[in-house]
Structure formats: C-alpha cells, structure tokens
Design a protein around this nucleic acid. Structure first.
Lengths: 176, 176
DNA sequence: GGAGGATGCTTGACACGTCATCGATTCACG
DNA sequence: CGTGAATCGATGACGTGTCAAGCATCCTCC
C-alpha cells in the first residue's frame, strides 16, 4: 500500500497492543494489525455477552435466535429465514431450534401451505426470558463501548461497515 | 406515544406492549449497534481468513498456533504459553497441537527440567507451510481493510483498543 | 399429469470452544 | 523429609460451526 512501512508496521495505536502481546516482531502491516484487533475485540465482546446470557441457561447463539424470533413476533419465521438474520451465519439453526424447543422457548409447526417449511415462533416463556435478559445484555453492550464517546461509536460502526463491504459480505444486520 | 401499529395488540399492561414496539426498532441503543457490528464484522473477517488458509489443509485456529510458534522460533513454547498468546483464548490447545503434530507441522517434547511442561516447536515443514500462506493471508487482511484509508485504519485500531479495555479483558495476543 | 430440478430442512461427520476433572509433577512449608 | 497446595497437561462431555449428503416437498415445463 503506502510506502511508509517496509516490514515495520507504523503503530496505529502507539504500539500499545503490541507491547501487551510481548511480541518479538511488529505486525507485518497495518491491515494485519487491524484484522487481529477486530478478531480479538469481537472475542472479548462475545465473551462479555455470553456471560450476560448464560446464567439464564441459554447460550449466546440460542439467545440470538430468540432475538430474531422476537423481532418478527407474532409472525412466524421459517428456519432459513432465521439463519439469514443471524449475526453469524450457520446451517446449524435446526439444532439450535431443537434445544430451544425442548426447553420451551420456541414452538415449531410444519407449514400447511408449503410442507417444506417449518414455522418457528417464540413462546410466551421465551419472551419473558428475553425481557429478563434485556437489562443484562444492554449492560454488556454499554460495558463494551462505554469508554467511547457517541461520535466515536458512530465512527466505529461506520468503519466496520466499510470493512464488511470490503470483504464482499453484505447481508442484513437485523435482529430485533 | 409510540406510533400504534395494529398488529394484533395483546392485552398487555402498558409497559409490556411499549417494550414490544420499541424492539421493533432496528437497535435499542448505539452501544448495541456497535456490539453487533463488531461481532458481525469479525465473523466476516474470520471467514475470509479461514478461506485463505484452509486450502492448505489447516484450520484458522491451527494456523494461529503455527504463527505463535513461528514468532518464538527457535525457542520452544510450553502449551500454556501458546494458549496465552492466541487471539481467541481456548483451553483446547492440546488438541490443536495433537492434530498439528500428527500432520508434521509441530514437534513436541517433554521438558526435562520441569516434566510437567511440554515444549512445542514449529518444524521446518511448518515454517514452509506458513511461508507459503503468508501471501494469501496478507491478501485477506488487505481485502478486509482495503476500503479504509491509513488514517481510518489507525482510528479503527484505536477505538477497538478502547473497547477491549472497557470490557476489562487484557491478555496477550501474539502471533508472528 | 409426470419428470426433472429447485427449495427447505434434517442428519452425519469432524473440528473447535468451554467447562469440569483428573493425573503427574513441582514447590512451599511445616 | 513428607505432606499439601499449586501448576501443567490431558481427557470427557456438551454445544456449536461447517461441510456434505439425503429426504420430502414444491414448481416448471413438457
């Protein structure tokens, strides 16, 4: 890219990250530093969210499915529609739903008009569960970005959007 | 207050219904939007990196272990030291090493001075594998953040660093 | 209306993340 | 010296991500 660094990556954040890491060598490029920062940060945020949700007996992946279903409630969603709306794409939605249904948070019925489809809805118990978790999750979100000003949050969201576009992946960012 | 919307209003006490309607909005808070953006973006980036690495027959997690070992080469690392330096913390390093060793990318030897430790080193074949993958991985990194200016990359890295600190998680992440 | 293809879901296989536990080894302290 | 705590690692169990294959159902086109 630019000529300013050969092997030496210019410190995007004055080398703080690098120093924490006890790295013997700097990042090969700013792009690499950014990619690693994104993966690590998301890992930390995911952990934080999972910790907020798991005391209730569900995993973060299950929670996200419930959020999607709450967002469409009372209209049911087909399994593939849930998959499309999840943060992390996965063909494993069927199994997530298996466990959610066995715990009573979700109900499934075979669609009569198109028997290939399975209509999924969140139950009253599921809604109550989410309502109980909202505060915890909001707190986790706030903890994650609380150190940032409103402007910084907006900038962060915008830059991340550019990154997603650059990776050529763009599907809706929906949940509730 | 909230604009009514005639979807089958359940007889809820005001708070409940209002909450439902609020959740029809895209995001409940800027913090939530940012958290979701981070998770989704990292997912996209991880996919891109995994695609760059898996044609060579290793997973992204295995690749990251090899990168850590290359970073310390020729000094061997104990298993727990590898775990500390991985991007995503995991107690499963033993199993990652099992597969890497069986494929010949890594060699392990029981430490003679402290028999609890297992010294792990990357093999010559492992180094060659990484050398072959460097270009692919660099390209993936560039693809991810290529849409951003250098200044934007620096801003992104800085903001992500603040988020990590806010989550109160600081552990090392080294790779090469 | 019947054949072929597309669609939606399920299942199986494997790797990984996560937690709990256990065995082996080392070290600190009495 | 010997006991007990701490450390390191392996292992088992469970949920999930990922790919591939299989099955039922629908649709299109002949």
């Amino acid at each position: 890219m630019t000529t300013m660094q050969g092997v030496q990556a210019p410190p995007a954040s004055d080398g703080v990250l690098q120093r924490e890491l006890q790295q013997r060598r700097p990042f090969r490029s700013p792009a690499q530093e950014a990619a690693i920062a994104m993966l690590r940060t998301a890992d930390v945020v995911r952990r934080r969210l999972a910790a907020a949700v798991e005391p209730a007996g569900i995993t973060l992946a299950q929670y996200n499915v419930l959020r999607v279903l709450r967002g469409s409630n009372p209209t049911p969603l087909a399994t593939y529609e849930i998959a499309e709306r999840l943060i992390e794409q996965t063909p494993g939605v069927t199994r997530l739903l298996d466990r959610l249904e066995s715990q009573g948070w979700v109900s499934r019925t075979r669609c009569t008009e198109d028997r290939r489809l399975v209509h999924c809805r969140i139950t009253e118990d599921g809604l109550a569960l989410l309502a109980r978790l909202d505060a915890e999750v909001d707190a986790a979100d706030e903890a994650a970005v609380g150190a940032l000003s409103n402007d910084d949050v907006a900038v962060l969201v915008r830059l991340l959007g550019h990154v997603r576009q650059g990776c050529g992946a763009e599907h809706p960012t929906a949940d509730d």
